[in-house]
């Protein structure tokens, strides 16, 4: 059984935001409009956090793409009363929209603020409504949602591999953000396969995990120059 994970090379990320756009397109994430976005209700399953280091004029700009960290010990899963948030066998932190009653407890428990609430029924600005992905359900008002590591692509690739009678090779599965990253800052793969690219990166001495001290055991590794 694989354990899906991701490695993010912060030294490669240039903050272009292609991953954010790709994620919106792939996962049918509603656009909320300028007013709601100003109130902090824009739902970006992956976001580019932008930090400045140092004092002006000696400033260095760094970017950190943050998505659901697919934690091994996920705080969001424990607190969900209806098992809408639970752990799959392949290490994914799954969200079952139809089971969600909208307590929003999972979002409070998430240290990464990687969970999003549908305040209204989803809507898309024209012509975005013409490019909805048929593999992903849309979420009604009152439901939590979050990055799934593009589980529809994972399952699709697994089914395809089984149909072809072959093995799933490293790199066969690419979540939308990974696929769209021009500088290959994002790498996705099986962490239990010692030869996969993601696995090798996650063991890199440059690697750290986000808020490791909270004890969530994330499956996303951030690689950065150690100063």
């Amino acid at each position: 059984m694989p354990r899906w994970g991701m490695a993010v090379d912060l030294d490669r990320c240039n903050g272009c935001g292609a991953c954010v756009v790709a994620c919106h397109a792939e996962n049918n994430i509603a656009t909320v409009g300028a007013d709601e976005a100003a109130r902090g209700r824009a739902n970006h399953w992956i976001r580019i956090e932008r930090y400045w280091e140092g004092e002006f004029p000696d400033v260095r700009l760094t970017f950190r793409p943050v998505m659901c960290q697919q934690c091994g010990n996920a705080p969001c899963e424990i607190v969900c009363p209806t098992y809408a948030s639970h752990h799959t066998e392949d290490g994914l932190n799954a969200q079952v929209y139809n089971r969600c009653v909208g307590t929003r407890y999972c979002a409070n428990a998430c240290p990464y603020n990687a969970r999003f609430f549908n305040f209204f029924n989803p809507a898309w600005d024209k012509p975005l409504h013409l490019q909805l992905n048929p593999d992903v359900s849309v979420r009604e008002a009152g439901v939590m949602e979050k990055c799934t590591f593009c589980v529809q692509r994972i399952r699709g690739a697994q089914l395809q591999a089984r149909a072809d009678g072959g093995e799933l090779r490293d790199g066969d599965i690419q979540p939308a953000c990974v696929q769209s990253c021009a500088v290959r800052a994002l790498v996705f793969g099986d962490l239990d396969d010692p030869d996969s690219e993601a696995s090798r990166f996650s063991r890199s001495p440059r690697g750290t995990r986000l808020l490791e001290d909270v004890g969530t055991r994330p499956n996303v590794t951030y690689l950065a120059r150690q100063s």
Partner: peptide, 23 residues
């Protein structure tokens, strides 16, 4: 405060056709 208050009964422990119990 529920997002979908009409489904609040999903928190009650009862045998349902969803075959799933509260956590």
């Amino acid at each position: 405060h529920l997002g979908r208050p009409w489904l609040a009964f999903w928190l009650f422990p009862y045998p349902s056709e969803r075959l799933i119990w509260p956590n």
